[in-house]
C-alpha cells in the first residue's frame, strides 16, 4: 500500500511538459490604448481629424495587435478642394525581443494587414489656354465623388512598450506601410489619400504612433 501510495504521490508532483508549454502561451493581459499623435494632429492641423485605439494580447513572446481608427482630410488645393473620410483597422502579430525583462517591457518587430473603407470628393477649376480662342483662356470646373471605396495594405512595424506605473504603459509604433491596393465602389477621379495609409500614389509610406495604454491582467504570471 505504501509503495502504491508513493507511486501516486510521485505522479501528482510531476509537471507535464505539455501543460507548461500550453500555460506559457496563455495570455496574461490585455493592453488597450490610444494614439496621442492623432489626437494632437486633430487639434493642431486644421486639415486633419482623426483618432485611433490600439490593443494587444500576449501569447508568450507573440502579441496579437489590433488597431481601429478614423481619419478625415479637408485640403484646400491651390485650385479647389479635396475631402475624404473613412474608418480603418489593422491586425497583425508583434514579436517581443525583451523576454527576460522583469517588468515585461517590450521591444518588438511585427507586421500588420491594414484595411480602410472610405469616400472622397474633389472640386477644382483650372484655366486652359489652348482650347477656346487663342486670346481667351478656357475655364474648366470639375467635380467628382468616390464612394464606397475600400483599400488594403501591409505594414512592417517596430516599437517599444514601457511600463510607467501599475497598469499604465507608454510606447511608440513606427510603421512602414506598403503595397496599397484600392478597389470597389464608384470612382469618378483618382484616389488621393487613403485613411490609415496616406497618399494613394505612394507605394510605401511611413507612420508613427505614440501610444498610452492601460493593461488589464487576465492571469497571474507564474
Amino acid at each position: 500500500m505504501a509503495l502504491i501510495g508513493s507511486v501516486f504521490s510521485q505522479d501528482k508532483a510531476k509537471v507535464n511538459p505539455a501543460d507548461t508549454l500550453k500555460s506559457k502561451y496563455l495570455p496574461t493581459g490585455l493592453r488597450l490604448g490610444t494614439d496621442l499623435i492623432s489626437i494632437i494632429k486633430s487639434n493642431v492641423i486644421p486639415s486633419f481629424k482623426g483618432w485611433e485605439v490600439n490593443g494587444d494580447l500576449d501569447f508568450y513572446k507573440y502579441y496579437l495587435a489590433v488597431d481601429y481608427g478614423y481619419w478625415a482630410r479637408n485640403y484646400d488645393l491651390v485650385n479647389g478642394n479635396y475631402q475624404n473620410s473613412g474608418d480603418y483597422f489593422r491586425v497583425g502579430i508583434d514579436l517581443n525581443f525583451l523576454l527576460k525583462d522583469p517588468d515585461r517591457n517590450m521591444f518588438f518587430f511585427g507586421f500588420r494587414y491594414g484595411h480602410s473603407s472610405f469616400r472622397e470628393s474633389l472640386s477644382y477649376t483650372y484655366a486652359d489656354s489652348v482650347y477656346g480662342s487663342s486670346q481667351n483662356q478656357y475655364l474648366i470646373t470639375k467635380t467628382g465623388n468616390n464612394t464606397g471605396l475600400s483599400a488594403h495594405w501591409i505594414e512592417l512595424t517596430t516599437g517599444l512598450r514601457v511600463k510607467i506605473w501599475s497598469g499604465f504603459w507608454m510606447g511608440y509604433t513606427a510603421r512602414l506601410k506598403f503595397a496599397p491596393v484600392i478597389g470597389g465602389g464608384k470612382r469618378e477621379f483618382h484616389s488621393f489619400d487613403i485613411p490609415g495609409y496616406g497618399l494613394a500614389e505612394k507605394s510605401d509610406y511611413w507612420g508613427l504612433d505614440y501610444q498610452l495604454f492601460w493593461r488589464f491582467p487576465v492571469r497571474k504570471i507564474k
Binding site: 488645393l77 491651390v78 479635396y82 470639375k142 483618382h190
Partner: peptide
C-alpha cells in the same frame, strides 16, 4: 478623361 490631385501645393488636373 479623369481628374487627379497632384499635390495640395499644385492642385488637381485633368488627364
Amino acid at each position: 478623361t479623369y481628374s487627379r490631385v497632384i499635390a495640395t501645393d499644385c492642385g488637381a488636373f485633368l488627364y
